[in-house]
Design a protein around this nucleic acid. Structure first.
Lengths: 150, 150
DNA sequence: GTTCTTGCAAAGGCTTTGCAGTTCT
DNA sequence: AGAACTGCAAAGCCTTTGCAAGAAC
């Protein structure tokens, strides 16, 4: 499974993000999952919060963050942090791994995969003695729409 | 030139980061450059600040940040933001582009390049109609040292 | 009834900015 | 002089956490 998770901000002594044994269902968490499943993908926490509020007015941003961490821990959602440092979320599991093409003009995300690149990454990691656990590839540039405008 | 810069936090109306015409030399900026050139690379702002203080006691963290932005704008330094969201800096120009292998256990960085991956990225971008301007590849896993310990 | 979840507000980490004083041209 | 640079402190942004109240098991 390929999931890049935020490493540094997780403090050693902090409580478990997701105790999957004891995790309960709740409307809020379900709402977050629904938003992610039905949305366009690559949403940040604020966008998820807004969308969730339409379903469940009053839901707090902290709840959204907690739900996301929990869902990431359970492997149901994957978090990815692009160069702007703001985490984006997308449903995991059902969806295959993919890399991202990110438009530097309009900010849109396009998903892409190249099996050969994946393979070469394995090779590159092996060459340096690394046991690869995940990777992240982002390509920045102008999307087709924005290329035309310039 | 390949430099991933922080996009979102740069506000539209904010003053120019680096007015290269008017940029002046100063001991602090030179100190920052020296730290970057002589250091191990992949330093974050705090580490740069500490190292710079040894050379110039009293230098402020804001100055370091401002110097880094200026130097990034001038293309002398490149900023890159890994999955922990904390910016790292390394001297640009003299150094060739490279990707990063990042150890999930000890946090160390290893530089690596694979020309074939670079080429395939171009291809992937072209396939989706993107005009590539930069990219970022990070491979997470266990470095040789940490692999042994496990 | 215990354990988990929630909203709110407060705090945290990293980074930027306003301001008044200093340094460079 | 004029423009750019600096330190400090304050503010900003995104995210996490403490706490008391509520919901799930």
């Amino acid at each position: 499974m390929i999931t890049v998770i935020n490493m540094a901000k997780r403090k050693p002594g902090s409580p478990k993000i997701c105790d999957c044994q004891g995790a309960r269902k709740s409307r809020r968490r379900e709402a977050v999952v629904e938003v992610l499943s039905s949305g366009p993908g690559h949403l940040n926490a604020e966008q998820i919060h807004k969308a969730a509020q339409k379903r469940l007015p009053g839901i707090g941003i902290a709840t959204v963050y907690r739900a996301l961490k929990c869902l990431c821990g359970c492997g149901k959602v994957s978090e990815f942090i692009p160069a702007d440092g703001v985490a984006r979320y997308e449903p995991a599991g059902s969806r295959a791994h993919h890399d991202h093409l990110i438009c530097t003009a309009c900010g849109c995300f396009t998903e892409a995969v190249d099996p050969e690149i994946e393979r070469l990454q394995e090779r590159l990691a092996a060459k340096h003695g690394y046991k690869i656990s995940s990777h992240r590839l982002e390509i920045y540039g102008l999307c087709p729409c924005c290329s035309k405008k310039v």
